[in-house]
C-alpha cells in the first residue's frame, strides 16, 4: 500500500562503499564546565576550539578545517566534522583544553566515527536483557 502523497517511484537505496579510508571523521563532544550555568553560542564554541588548536599547534594548527555540524546549547553537546588526517590534532587539542574564561572545563569525547550515521545511537547505552 502506497501513500497517496508520495510519487510512484520505489524507494531508492544507495549503497556506499569506501575503498580507501573515509575522508571525514565525525566527533560527538560534550563540554563540561565548572559553572554549569554558563552558556556558549555555537560561534563561541568554535572560537574556543580554534583557540585550543592554536595554543597547541600554533598558526598552522589553527588553519585546520573542521565544521561544527550541530550544536545543542542547552546540553553543550556538539557534532564536529574533520578531515581524517586532522583528527589526531583536533582530538588532542580538545583533550588538553582545560580552562574556559578562567574556569575549569573539560571536553568529553562521546563518540568518534568515520560515519555520521553511527552517531545516531550509542551501543554502550543500550539496555541489554
Amino acid at each position: 500500500m502506497r501513500r497517496a502523497d508520495k510519487d510512484d517511484k520505489p524507494t531508492v537505496y544507495q549503497r556506499v562503499v569506501l575503498k580507501n579510508a573515509s575522508p571525514h571523521h565525525y566527533m560527538k563532544i560534550h563540554l563540561v564546565l565548572q559553572d554549569a550555568s554558563t552558556r556558549l553560542s555555537a560561534v563561541e564554541l568554535k572560537q574556543f576550539i580554534i583557540t585550543g588548536l592554536k595554543s597547541l599547534y600554533g598558526e598552522v594548527g589553527a588553519a585546520l578545517n573542521f565544521d561544527l555540524l550541530k550544536y545543542d546549547e542547552d546540553t553543550l553537546t556538539a557534532l564536529l566534522r574533520v578531515y581524517s588526517r586532522g583528527l589526531v590534532k583536533l582530538w588532542s587539542s580538545l583533550t588538553l583544553l582545560g580552562s574556559y574564561q578562567n574556569q575549569a572545563c573539560a571536553f568529553r569525547v562521546l563518540q568518534v566515527s568515520p560515519f555520521l550515521l553511527s552517531l545516531t545511537g550509542n551501543s554502550r547505552d543500550l539496555q541489554l536483557d
Binding site: V88, W91, S92, T95, L96, A104, A106, V109
Partner: peptide
C-alpha cells in the same frame, strides 16, 4: 586533583600519539 582534569581512556590513547 579535580574531576575536570580527568580524561577518558580513548582521549589519553590519542594523547599518547602526541
Amino acid at each position: 586533583e579535580k574531576a575536570l582534569e580527568l580524561r577518558g581512556p580513548y582521549d589519553i590513547t590519542n594523547l599518547g600519539l602526541l
